[in-house]
Amino acid sequence: MRGEDDPEAPKPSGAAWGKAMRASSELLAGIFVGSLLGLGLDRLLGSEPWFLLAGIGLGFAAGLRNLSRSL
């Protein structure tokens, strides 16, 4: 089952799928937002690609932060 908030998932493989889905979506979202902010700052300041790189790193950290909060 892919419902990650379900307390009694019938199959362990389903629960694993849910966790994987959750982890990947958190990391993806973090990196996406981070790189978007970085890209925006780069555009604004003409500093490609430094803010983008920093954004990706911070985004990854933020994704991990969300992941640790949710688990």
Binding site: E4, R22, L28, L58, G59, A61, R65, N66
Partner: peptide, 16 residues
């Protein structure tokens, strides 16, 4: 990191 985390939470929700 917290700001990015805050902004990325609904995005993660949408992706899921």
């Amino acid at each position: 990191i917290e700001v990015i985390s805050f902004l990325s939470r609904p995005l993660s929700l949408a992706i899921r």
